[in-house]
């Protein structure tokens, strides 16, 4: 489809690796991958200028499935690695991919501080309300009565509301997406990337293996009835009172991203010696 001419626009295909996903056939993450590539193409980014950083989990496998620079780190620490990368290399577009276990449980502290620090990152969490990769244990977003081997009869714990927490912690852009709507999700990711500061996109992405009932999500989601607000309190109220199925940008702020001036100072290390010299 794409012509090899230099002037041809970058296609989504150009962001797809020849390395094929190991996700279960039917997994929502396939569509998220497609949304990533579409969002990058939409913004006409170059693969070498994008870094996709992740932790551990099914969802975190995504970097190698793109043709971008990828970083598949350790469980729960993707936001930290990504912040380090972005702060040291502000010229790159850094997108972070995570799961609900990776991002909200083991990585929960980094999530709070990433929102608060407001580094110009796009944080995409593929939320399937389960630990997929470890065979189906409850995550912070799992319903209290969901039965599993590790939580017979359910955890009885109330679910974590990542969007409200992101707002409270200072995220500058908050959106909810649905994997089954790859074009819409691509738009949201593209908008998240284009919005300076920490942008959080929570994607409902079904785990058809351990949560097959999530196939029904496609009948449950709907576009958010109202356009986003820049009033965090109002956004929080809306999110807390919706049923978790409203899709779209829910909050967009104007906080200045955190970025120390890297590369500005022009002194040599030896210039620093004067403070030791007697």
């Amino acid at each position: 489809m794409s012509s090899p001419a230099a002037a041809a626009p970058i296609t989504a295909q150009a962001f797809k690796s020849d390395y094929k996903p190991i996700w279960c056939p039917g997994c929502g993450d396939y569509s998220v991958l497609s949304s990533f590539t579409k969002a990058f193409a939409k913004l006409q980014l170059l693969p070498q200028d994008v870094a996709v950083v992740s932790g551990i989990g099914c969802s975190s496998r995504i970097p190698a499935y793109t043709t971008c620079y990828g970083f598949h780190g350790v469980h729960g620490r993707s936001l930290a690695a990504a912040a380090g990368l972005k702060l040291a290399r502000p010229d790159l577009t850094v997108v972070v991919a995570s799961g609900d276990g990776d991002g909200y449980s083991i990585g929960g502290n980094h999530f709070l501080h990433a929102c608060r620090r407001n580094v110009d990152l796009t944080y995409v969490v593929m939320d399937n309300h389960v630990y997929g990769m470890t065979k189906g244990q409850p995550s912070p977003t799992t319903e209290p009565d969901w039965d599993s081997k590790l939580s017979p009869g359910g955890t009885g714990l109330r679910t974590f509301n990542p969007l409200v927490i992101a707002l409270a912690a200072g995220a500058n852009f908050v959106a909810r997406a649905f994997a089954g709507d790859p074009n819409g999700t691509a738009d949201l990711i593209a908008e998240a990337i284009s919005t300076p500061g920490f942008s959080f996109v929570e994607i409902l992405s079904p785990c058809i293996t351990f949560r097959p009932e999530q196939r029904e999500w496609k009948q449950m989601v709907r576009p958010a009835a109202v356009t986003y607000t820049n009033d965090a309190a109002r956004a929080a109220r809306r999110i807390m009172t919706d049923d978790g199925m409203n899709i779209g940008v829910l909050y967009k702020g104007e906080r200045k991203p955190y970025q120390p001036p890297i590369g500005k100072g022009k002194k040599n290390p030896s210039d620093l010696e004067t403070e030791f010299a007697l």
Binding site: F71, A80, G84, L85, L87, N109, L112, P261, K267
Partner: peptide, 27 residues
Amino acid sequence: PKIGGALVQAEDELASINMIVGSSYGG
């Protein structure tokens, strides 16, 4: 900052070590 660099205070050591792995991955 004087020599074109930066220091970031991380939220914990898990973050600080992963941050520098990220920044060094960035060159």
